[in-house]
Simulated assay, not measured.
Amino acid sequence: MPEMTPDWSLRRLVHLVAIYAGALLFGLVAHWLHFPLPWMIGAMVFASSVRMLDRPLPVPGQTRQIGQVLVATSVGLSFTPEAVGAMVSLLIPMVGAAILTIGLGFVVAAFLMRVTRADIITAVLASIPMGPVESATLAVKHNVRPGPVVFAQTLRIMLLVLLIPPAIVALDGTVKDPVAALSRMEWTASGALLLALAGVAGAYAARAVRLANPFFVGSLGGAALAAAFSLPITAYPYPVLVLAQVFLGVWLGAVFDRDLVRHARGFIPGAIMASLLLIALCICMGMALTWITDEKWQVMMLSTAPGSVTEMALTAKILEDGLAVVTAFHVVRIFIILPFASSIIGVTARLAQRWGLQSHD
């Protein structure tokens, strides 16, 4: 641990300023190219490029939590009593979509085993959308290498962010300025501050009871309660959402480094194909739910995307349609998959042992 001298602190501050300046520059280019979520995508591309050059990106871990709180509370504004009432009728499709996503994860895991000769635990942990941190923890618990698992989970999230929002906005055809819906929100200083306080309170309450993904789910809950009780909360000024996108983009891109790729080298082509397969299968599920629920196809595709609740919710906000529904689908899936992830992998391990499915490594 280096001594916290003024000179060392100044160097670190300069380093952080350079990192976020580079991320903002890439975000500006993405904004100029009319990408949806330009600041997040630009920051992610910048951070992953720097890490692939084997350069350090020592960003504070709290930046991801700040980004999640800001985005989650912004999304929570949409949970008005009317929106919550409309979602009650979709509870069965939400639960069904979450369970079916687990089933599709096993289908993709079987494909991944065939093309990479990975063991069944690695394949399942890499294929069911449960997040890089959670899946890596379970990999260590079950004595398999966490590197390929983290790579596959991170790769899927990056592909979702890079492919789904631009594709849906392009196919929708009604959005001329992808950032307009985020930048023209009315706000007041007191309302934005109250929104942030509601989110932080919800985040720490969720953390205290050990909920999954507390800084998103808890902040969302705090903001949703504030909206439901008609407290005088408002949106944030647009620069705050830019900051949130940059924080999240840099954090996500920084995970995707050369060392991670090096340890998953033989696994990479299969992981790319498996990620695209899961995304395609979930798109098919979303289209089927469009017919079942009478919701718009854009809303259902965002709702059933296998991960990236933050980015899918922001895309719904850009489309100005179905934000509460998209968020609810993802939150229900989070609460079904993450609490039972350990049990799912435990049962898989026992069945694999009984059926003689051993590692091919």
Rank of each mutant, 00 (worst) to 15 (best):
M1R: 06
P6M: 10
L10C: 12
H15C: 05
A21F: 14
G22N: 01
G22I: 07
F35Y: 05
F35G: 04
G42T: 01
A43T: 02
S49F: 12
M52R: 14
L57S: 03
V59W: 07
G61M: 00
T63R: 08
G67Q: 10
G67W: 08
P81N: 02
E82K: 02
V88Q: 12
I92T: 15
L100S: 10
T101G: 15
A110F: 06
A123M: 02
L125R: 00
G147R: 13
P148K: 01
D172V: 01
G173S: 10
V175C: 04
A180H: 14
E186T: 14
L194F: 07
L195M: 08
A196E: 11
Y204D: 00
A205F: 12
A206I: 05
R207Y: 08
L211A: 09
V217N: 06
V217R: 07
A224S: 06
S230Y: 11
A235N: 13
Y236R: 05
Q245M: 07
V246T: 10
G253A: 07
D257L: 03
I268D: 05
I272A: 04
M273W: 15
L277M: 11
C282A: 03
C282F: 05
I283T: 13
I292K: 04
Q298S: 12
M300C: 13
T304V: 12
G307K: 01
T310C: 12
M312I: 01
V325Q: 14
H330I: 07
V331W: 03
I336A: 09
A341R: 01
S342M: 11
S343V: 13
L357I: 15
D361P: 15
